[in-house]
């Protein structure tokens, strides 16, 4: 699958909501490529972009969401593996990143499109502290009930202070 076509389709449907995109192609010879595509999307059209991706082929969420922390915002990264057709080595990584302002840490759930993402979203809620809206099961996944509210273990710079 051509990465340009994915970006074009998304841009046609969502217009300027696509903030940036870049791709990385590693060639292994014999026409076999490892393709990774990074797309930044704003929060409003994030949900609909996943819905569009879902129509393109088999969409699989690969890891729980990593994040990058900045002064005023958090960049949440959703790594997807997208497979359009049933040929070998055709799966490409589509990595969607969304900026969320720190004073409003909220994002809409994607479990209505990719139900398998539930565990990942629950982990995001408890580890990073981003509130997932409309999540079917908001309980904590790993830390049970013994972690005090407001402590998010993977928020590195602040977690040490908040723990003490």
């Amino acid at each position: 699958m051509k990465t340009e076509s994915i970006v074009t389709v998304l841009q046609n449907k969502l217009g300027s909501h696509i903030q940036a995109s870049r791709e990385k192609i590693t060639n292994y010879g014999n026409g076999i490529n490892r393709v990774t595509l990074w797309i930044s999307i704003d929060r409003e059209s994030f949900h609909s972009s996943i819905a569009i991706l879902k129509t393109m082929g088999r969409l699989h969420i690969s890891t729980p969401m990593p994040y990058k922390e900045y002064e005023d915002r958090i960049e949440l990264i959703y790594p997807f593996a997208l497979k359009e057709k049933d040929t070998k080595f055709s799966e490409i990584m589509v990595i969607i990143s969304v900026d969320i302002p720190k004073d409003d840490l909220k994002i809409r759930t994607i479990t209505d499109i990719v139900p398998g993402a539930l565990f990942m979203e629950r982990e995001t809620m408890e580890m990073i502290g981003v509130e997932i809206e409309d999540i079917p099961d908001p309980r904590r996944l790993f830390t049970g009930n013994y972690l005090p509210d407001g402590v998010y273990p993977l928020r590195t710079p602040k977690s040490k202070e908040s723990m003490q």
């Binding site: 969420i61 070998k88 055709s90 990719v114």
Partner: peptide, 25 residues
């Protein structure tokens, strides 16, 4: 299996042809 993002022998046992060795170099 497809909706819940199953992987490995679990997915393949359901007939979902998903294998990183084949899908991804």
């Amino acid at each position: 299996a497809e909706r819940l993002c199953a992987v490995g022998p679990t997915a393949r046992g359901s007939g979902l042809m998903k294998d990183v060795r084949v899908d991804y170099p």
